[in-house]
Design a protein around this nucleic acid. Structure first.
Lengths: 194, 194
DNA sequence: CGAATCATTGAGGAATTTCAAGTGGTGTGG
DNA sequence: CCACACCACTTGAAATTCCTCAATGATTCG
């Protein structure tokens, strides 16, 4: 079932040279799923961390694709294989339903973020989301670039950067370096998030 | 399986007085699914038309809810019922997976719209989406208010209104009245959509 | 060390929102 | 049937947020 594959950053998810549809589980590293417009504008729908399972629908051109944010190992399952399994195993079919439902719920939260939240609220939401991954430690490692964050939050890299320094000035976070953020005041972040 | 229910506009989807999780099929009328922030900001994730089936996860407060845009009849299926059915019937489980996947794909398109498209592109996308419903007739009936459109597209009602009149000036559409739009130049709309 | 890439900062500008006023259609009561 | 009120929609002007462009600083990698 597992077909681990070493990924290098920004390498497209392909299989045998052509696009296929499949589900994937992140063994190590971080993956982003996104769509791109003809003129290059990009929207990242989600980041996936070790332990996460995510689905891709790459049947036609206008669908999502996935890229590695860091070097990572991925377990791949071809959709055709899943099709066969779901015919035999009800639990498997239900698991896929649950997976899609979780992704859908996350997407709907993100619709709210992109459609209705301000820049500060978006960045605060993002930090809270990252911080929830390891809630005990306030020092959060940021695996993705500012460009990735911007394309996830529907902002420019400059606005992301400015907002982060503003949050630092306000005492909500600390920025030891650009890939590490200390959430030293989660209450303040919660307040800034809508 | 069908439990048709007459809805009046803006009535919340409830069942027996408390929120439950279920799937629903639109028999007649139009439904919107959305989330709301504490301060009232609203994001509509999708509109559902007759024949559409949609899923709701209303288990806790921060999830989506549905409202009727027009008077409508809805077929409801409790999620607990679906749980039972999916245990017995593999095809049913796969159908639910497909449903969630379709909604997810739509949500991802909408993430791109909200995160990266301009006001004109958003309105053009919206009109194209509405127009695709009955591609033979260019006269599209708009069942939802400007407020609904704005909360769907992440804009204000003023921007929606201004953009529509601009599209009319540019000859892309005609506005006989505010609830009817003639897509007299779909090519122009396609060009404006990214 | 130097080049290249990524991140930060600043100034100016553009797109959208906000606030405010005006228009149009609809329903109700006189 | 008309007057009025009400609501949704439209339009305009000012304000704001975020983006664009440009320069500087930091980090990585050969």
């Amino acid at each position: 079932m597992r077909n681990p594959d070493q990924w290098r950053p920004t390498k497209f998810v392909r299989h045998g040279g052509r696009l296929v549809t499949f589900d994937a589980s992140v063994v190590s590293g971080v993956v982003r799923t996104h769509r791109v417009l003809d003129d290059g504008r990009r929207q990242i729908s989600s980041f996936h961390f070790p332990g996460d399972v995510f689905g891709l629908e790459m049947s036609d051109e206008h669908q999502s694709s996935a890229e590695a944010v860091t070097s990572c190992e991925i377990g791949l399952v071809k959709r055709s294989m899943l099709d066969r399994m779901t015919n035999e195993n009800t639990a498997c079919a239900r698991e896929l339903w649950a997976l899609a439902s979780r992704e859908l719920s996350h997407a709907r939260s993100h619709l709210m973020l992109l459609g209705r939240k301000t820049a500060v609220e978006r960045v605060a939401s993002f930090l809270i989301e990252l911080g929830a991954r390891d809630s005990d430690d306030d020092a959060v490692k940021i695996p993705m670039s500012r460009s990735d964050i911007a394309d996830y939050l529907g902002l420019t890299i400059e606005t992301v950067s400015r907002t982060l320094t503003q949050l630092e000035r306000d005492g909500a976070i600390e920025l030891p370096n650009c890939r590490q953020i200390v959430l030293c005041n989660r209450a303040a972040l919660d307040r800034l998030d809508a």
